[in-house]
Structures are given as structure tokens and as C-alpha cells.
């Protein structure tokens, strides 16, 4: 059950510093949306407001609305923990739990949330690892530590871990930036598959990657250091790359930036 995300008038703060200002955008269910833009323009910050991970950092604050279908994630009475179960996240650096085996890593989200029952878990673990294209590589060593995998395998393990709790939306913050081209391709293929079940938002610095995997692309920019990041435009990916409506987007994409 993929869901639609509707962001309006979103600003986020670190202490008194406003990192992003007045962001409004829509992400359709079962699509891949790419966030691009220069370093520090607030892509990660926007992404982290979508599953209320922003507020994990002390002293942070969010204004505006994030609707998931019709529910405002920042509305009264919303439990951030429940939000994060619905909106999963994969980070830039693979971060498997070092004390856990491959199996335990994938089962972690369920186990830590109190799901017991070996047979249920076995099924979910296999299904998630297959979903993350990792099953064949690890099926004979599920009880070996997750840290013993290669970087690319670890990242796919983290994707398996994220999809094991069956979220509706998957957020990925530069999931391939620490990976070699082959692992990157494996993950891009995976994103294309996952699209049929999930709403996906991916941050990337790699233009070709954005062009390859995404249906829509959002370009963010900052006016200068200390200024908040803003959404310049969001449109169908082919349009953004061939014929953007904003000059800044074209400059950034063609490398005539700054």
C-alpha cells in the first residue's frame, strides 16, 4: 500500500538556523522522486522531515505540513515512532547493527517492535532479502555477522531491513554514494523493482542516477551560505534534464553552477 506525500509550507530549523524554507511538493504513490541540488541545500533535511527523523537531533523544529495520504504527520496526537514504521529510511552510509547477524539485522525492525514467532520471521527475512536482491548471496550464512558483508551488500542489507517492517514509503539518502558502480547498479535495479510496491524518494548527487531511476526530480538550491535552502522546481525527470523551466536548474544540471 504505497502512499502519496503532500508537503506544504515546510520549514525546518536547527536551533535558530533555518535550513529549509517554505517547501511545497507532492510525491505520487508508486513513483520514484529524486532530490538533487548542491551540497548543503537541505535535501537531507527535507527527506528527514518526511519521517520525523529531523526531530531526533536535539534543538530542531519543523513548521508546515506533511500529509501522508490525508494524515498530517505533524498533526496533534501523531506518534513519531508510528510514523517511522510507515515511512522507512535508508542512510548514506550502510549502518547494519554490529552485534547482530544478517538474519537478526533484517528481523530487527520486527523483533525490536515485539514480533515473535520464528516461522513468521523466517518468511519475512527471506522475502525482504529477496526483495533487496541479496538472498542468493547470503542464504548460506544468515547467522554470520552483518558487518562481515561488503559495503554494497551491507547497503542492500539495510534496504532489506527497511522493507522488512513493510513501510508504505521508502526514503533513501544518497544510498549509493559509498558504493562501487556494480553495487550501485544493483541498487538502482532494486529501486526500479521496489517502485511497484513503494513510494520512493531518493537523494542523489549523481545526475545520471537521477535520470535513470526517477520519474520526477526536485531541484533544491541555496542563495548563499547561511541562507535557507529552497525548492527551485519539481517536474517530470525528462523535462528537468532536457528542458527545465528555471535557469538555475539548467545551470546546475549542465555543470555551469555557481
Amino acid at each position: 500500500m504505497a502512499k502519496r506525500i503532500d508537503v506544504s509550507g515546510l520549514s525546518a530549523y536547527y536551533g535558530s538556523v533555518r535550513a529549509i524554507e517554505d517547501i511545497s511538493l507532492t510525491v505520487e504513490p508508486r513513483t520514484v522522486t529524486a532530490f538533487i541540488g548542491p551540497s548543503g541545500c537541505g535535501k537531507s533535511t527535507v527527506l528527514r522531515t518526511l519521517n520525523r527523523m529531523h526531530e531526533v537531533i536535539p534543538g530542531t523544529r519543523v513548521e508546515g505540513k506533511v500529509l501522508l495520504d490525508d494524515v498530517d504527520l505533524y498533526g496533534p496526537g501523531i506518534d513519531p515512532v508510528a510514523v517511522r514504521r510507515t515511512v522507512g529510511m535508508v542512510f548514506q552510509r550502510p549502518n547494519p547493527f554490529p552485534t547482530m547477524s544478517i538474519y537478526e539485522n533484517v528481523a530487527a525492525g520486527l523483533r525490536l517492535n515485539g514480533v515473535r514467532g520464528k516461522s513468521d520471521l523466517d518468511g519475512v527475512v527471506e522475502h525482504s532479502l529477496r526483495g533487496a536482491n541479496l538472498w542468493n548471496e547470503v542464504k548460506d550464512r544468515l547467522n554470520k555477522p552483518g558487518m562481515g558483508l561488503s559495503g554494497g551488500q551491507q547497503q542492500r542489507l539495510c534496504i532489506a531491513r527497511a522493507i522488512a517492517v513493510s513501510p508504505e514509503v521508502l526514503l533513501m539518502d544518497e544510498p549509493c554514494s559509498a558504493l562501487d558502480p556494480i553495487s550501485t547498479l544493483a541498487i538502482e535495479d532494486l529501486i526500479a523493482q521496489l517502485k511497484s510496491e513503494y513510494t520512493i524518494v531518493i537523494v542523489t548527487h549523481n545526475m545520471q542516477q537521477a535520470a535513470r531511476v526517477s520519474d520526477r526530480t526536485a531541484f533544491f538550491n541555496i542563495a548563499g551560505t547561511g541562507e535557507p535552502g529552497k525548492l527551485i522546481e519539481i517536474d517530470e525527470t525528462p523535462r528537468i534534464f532536457a528542458n527545465p523551466s528555471q535557469r538555475a536548474t539548467e545551470d546546475y544540471i549542465t555543470g555551469r553552477f555557481g
Binding site: M53, V56, F91, N95, F97, A108
Partner: peptide, 21 residues
């Protein structure tokens, strides 16, 4: 902190993150 975030992002409450991760 990345480990704590990994756990929070799975929808694990803070106290379980502390005791289990």
C-alpha cells in the same frame, strides 16, 4: 549516532533502541 538513527528509522522507540541496540 548512525546506529541509533538506524533503529529509530525502523520505528523502534527510544528505550528499546537503548536496551536492544
Amino acid at each position: 549516532p548512525a546506529l541509533r538513527e538506524a533503529s529509530y528509522a525502523l520505528g523502534v522507540p527510544k528505550w528499546r533502541t537503548i536496551t536492544k541496540v
